[in-house]
Design a protein around this nucleic acid. Sequence first.
DNA 1: ACCTGAACACCGTTCAAGT
DNA 2: ACCTGAACACCGTTCAAGT
Lengths: 244, 244
Amino acid sequence: MNPSPWQPLSPEKPARPTRTPLNRERIVDAAMRILLDQGYEAVSMRKVAQALDTGPASLYAHVANKGELDQLLVDRAAADIELPVADPARWQEQLKDMMRSTLKVMRANPGVARAAIGQVPLGERAMDSTEAMLAILKAGRVPDQAAAWAIDMLHLYVTAVAFEESVQGASGWTMEDVESFVAAMRNHFASLPADRYPVTVALAGALTAGALGDERFEFGLQVLISGLAAMVPPEDRQAAPATP
Amino acid sequence: MNPSPWQPLSPEKPARPTRTPLNRERIVDAAMRILLDQGYEAVSMRKVAQALDTGPASLYAHVANKGELDQLLVDRAAADIELPVADPARWQEQLKDMMRSTLKVMRANPGVARAAIGQVPLGERAMDSTEAMLAILKAGRVPDQAAAWAIDMLHLYVTAVAFEESVQGASGWTMEDVESFVAAMRNHFASLPADRYPVTVALAGALTAGALGDERFEFGLQVLISGLAAMVPPEDRQAAPATP
DNA sequence: ACCTGAACACCGTTCAAGT
DNA sequence: ACCTGAACACCGTTCAAGT
């Protein structure tokens, strides 16, 4: 199989061109670097081209349009989501773990949520994540149609949460900035006319709580997962561990 | 109170200027007309100005920026959401009704979802809707913190569903267009490599079902409401109506 | 106080021409 | 086949100047 050592050398290759040729990967690399450094708004065909030392028209040989570039960015980030092997006994916790992992990835790539919002993720890495979630839902005996629609809801929820966070933390707010933003919002709610908005005024604190940590997200996970668990036919339900 | 008939006429008003003066209302009117006729993408400061027969700079005397105009559009639409009076016995159905009404309004104003996504709705009509939802949740004995966070989830869900729909129905697709879009997507899922995506391939039909009607949305409502109902402390739960 | 024209600093996408 | 320059048809926002 090995070429004989005395085989004549192949004709001299043309000297490597000074500029490495463009391809999808290099384009996505450059776009991702801009996304991480300057946020989603800065990811334009023109800036990506500039980073690659060329003009925007050159990108269109490798990427259909800006929308496709967005999808490629989302899929690149999706590669980092941790995918457990479905375990019927732990399906609820496994789903939560996948959602937590997805949020973590989106937080680590601020701006990706903005590219992902309202698009059905069809890249291969995103599909790996969908496949894993479906397998977990099936392991938990969630009926097929419910499992399929659940995928949509779960994806939508985690993307929307990350999106909301990325709107706030837009240009690198400090923790103090976020706190004073939250405080301003709480004051706004608290100072509404109490005759028209009695409950809103009373709950001003609760409405603005948990904007920073994970409590709010965990609440949403709990609502979604317990709502889904209620769709498992009673005869398929795991017996709750007996309380001693 | 009536002016005496022989009261001298007030000094002659200057002839009504040929151009009615600009104000927020006229700006929002014009923007809403463009939104309904041509979709969200067409709502630009320049096009709104053009419709009012002026230049874009003129708008900035009445509206801080494009973002504020978006919020005003969302709030105008929110005025049409039906607000029930909270009834503890029917809280779950009332919440669903409000969500259905919100979706209906967003469907009637295609593009509003796009303006609303990822923004906390703070206009007065949107706040009326928040207040009503909070009142219903409290009537249902959902704990305060859960009720507050629920508002966020519910708003997020209905907005995201409407947004997804508006991305598809973007430029006035016919029902046939949507059907063939869904069919293409189903084929895509069904023809993925079955060794890597076994569950996805098997559920290709379920994953693309209900893109048209309300079943999918109703499923999401059911998940959310039953998840929330599970957060009502047991001692506060309505006794289930006895089955005869 | 309100409105305007003109400019600034951007967009995504197309296309004929080059290699 | 791939790349390029230049153009087309747009954006949001600012600002000095007008009334």
